[in-house]
């Protein structure tokens, strides 16, 4: 297993053992991520954080991860303050940035932008989300959350709920979960169901799957993963309200829930989860957000080669 110098563009860049390795290292990073232990593992290293598109969690947690390990961060949070405004290409921006740093994290609205960046940069590129495209570190932190909350990934019954068609992060998650022995339930209105290719791929990997249109009960589910249904997907606002409303998680839904079922959400949420849930033990989404830090610490340390 060799991580040093590798680009992280999609979760499919990793074999299952490599994912497990990253999660193991993330586990070791926990005390540092919490600020209880200090580290200078990445002292002298510079991460460029190039955010061409708004982000709260991904950007802050990458920067926190780098700084918790004693490293430095340069970059921008919106392209408005850079030469991109003057029409500089992404390729040129990347070639410039790489001469100032050891690793680049990029978030860009165009699909495939991270792949392009990886072609032009000699330093490793980490994809922090490319348009409706891929978001491998989100996937890793989701897996890490399930593992920590449930004591393992294998054997869980995991429901993915909401917009399963357009959200490619949820496609990556389904794929990654299928590598572990999990059972999955895809719950979405038929116009937003999981694409056939993803379903086939998960089946091929040996996942036990079922597909449902209604969120009638959560009986037997260990992990309920909620995603946002976007207004833009519906030509008719009333139709949107109706559909979104029928997938809202409220106290009622939890009546039949397993005692230790957890609810996850990549955030930001709009109305998908009632705030009343926040105070219950089921709510794992804020801990999930925190988990972005140790997972990104692990990735940075591995691809910069300071941990093997």
């Amino acid at each position: 297993m060799n991580f040093k110098g590798r680009d992280i563009v999609t979760i499919k860049d990793f074999k299952k053992e490599e994912i497990v390795k990253i999660l193991d290292v993330a586990e070791e990073m926990l005390p540092i991520a919490h600020g209880k232990e200090k580290s200078n593992l990445l002292q002298g290293y510079i991460m460029a954080s190039l955010f061409f598109e708004p982000s709260t969690r991904t950007r802050l947690s990458f920067e926190a991860a780098m700084k918790r390990l004693g490293g430095n961060v340069i970059g921008f949070a919106q392209p408005g303050t850079t030469s991109i405004q003057k029409g500089e290409s992404l390729a040129d921006t990347i070639r410039t940035a790489e001469s100032y740093c050891d690793v680049i994290v990029i978030r860009h609205p165009k699909e495939g932008s991270a792949r392009l960046a990886a072609e032009f940069a000699a330093v490793p590129i980490i994809n922090g989300g490319d348009g409706a495209g891929r978001h491998p570190t989100q996937c890793l932190l989701d897996l890490f959350t399930i593992r920590r909350e449930k004591g393992g990934i294998e054997g869980n019954k995991i429901a993915l709920l909401g917009d399963l068609k357009y959200g490619r992060t949820v496609h990556s998650l389904a794929y990654a979960l299928s590598l572990f022995k999990t059972e999955m339930v895809f719950i979405a209105p038929s116009e937003l169901q999981m694409p056939k290719e993803v379903v086939e791929e998960c089946r091929k990997n040996g996942a036990k799957l079922s597909i449902k249109n209604e969120l009638d009960d959560v009986d037997g589910i260990d992990v309920l993963y909620v995603t946002r249904i976007q207004k833009e997907r519906f030509p008719d606002p009333e139709e949107y309200e109706k559909v979104a409303g029928s997938y809202r998680i409220d106290m009622d839904i939890l009546k039949n829930a397993k005692e230790n079922m957890i609810i996850m959400h990549p955030l930001p949420r709009v109305n998908e989860i009632s705030p009343a849930i926040d105070a219950t033990k089921h709510a794992a989404y804020f801990r999930q957000t925190f988990n972005g830090v140790p997972v990104r610490m692990a990735l940075l340390a591995l691809i910069l080669g300071v941990i093997e």
């Binding site: 029409g87 290409s89 992404l90 390729a91 860009h108 609205p109 165009k110 699909e111 495939g112 932008s113 792949r115 392009l116 072609e119 490319d130 348009g131 409706a132």
Partner: peptide, 13 residues
């Protein structure tokens, strides 16, 4: 054919 693909932007590729 994906209009949002980076290969359809002004990039040297």
């Amino acid at each position: 054919p994906n209009p949002n693909c980076i290969s359809n932007s002004k990039e040297p590729i």
